[in-house]
Amino acid sequence: MKVLVAVKRVVDYNVKVRAKADGTGADLNNVKMAINPFCEIAIEEAVRLKEAGVATEVIAVSIGDKSCQEQIRTALALGADRGIQVETDGSPEPLVVAKLLKGVIAKEEPQLVILGKQSIDGDNNQTGQMLGALTNMPQGTFASEIKVEGDKLNVTREIDGGLQTIALNLPAIVTTDLRLNEPRYASLPNIMKAKKKQLDVYTPADLGVEPSAHLTTVKVEPPAERQAGIIVESVEQLVDKLKNEAKVIS
């Protein structure tokens, strides 16, 4: 079984981002970049499927300028067999990403596509679902457990009311939630080996896609700063403050 995993280059989760002064975006100057944590979980799951003898090949795909090859190589160091970069300017919107991934799926014909449920920069949570709609493949989003049984895939999903288990016909799309697995660190020998693994570069035209933007960013600004809280001495004081200062009760 061939598994395709999408990985995205994002600001490292430890970094506290700032909005640019002119409000056009986040300031990415001198900022550490990393693989999106949900994509890391997706890679880990694919590699575990391979180690279990279920998957035969794991392909990592990323969309962006040349710098995203670094994250592809991280995926290769984590255990993916080969990589694909679809070269675009900057980071396209979810619909464009989904269309490009559809093009890669047409070329590679994977049985399973694993994506992060969202990326920690845009937090859109759209690409997996859009890809499902465009390809007519069944989707299991927010997965906390997946199990391949024959040509079926059982996906346990984290939903508002608890857990839901669904069965999908393969080929299928899965998006990962945080509890699906705990990704490993790439060992040094694997980091070195990743350099030698195959990495193909496609243009959107190679995939028959014309990237067109439907979204424009109007303004990026930090959330309003909150006042520091206080600790009240007693219930009476709390009621008094709610009544007279906050004026939320009367």
Binding site: R73, A77, Y185, A186, S187, I191
Partner: peptide, 13 residues
């Protein structure tokens, strides 16, 4: 080099 930056990250972890 990229692989040494990754090594540094690994050691930091």
């Amino acid at each position: 080099d990229e692989e040494f930056r990754k090594l540094e990250e690994l050691v930091n972890h």
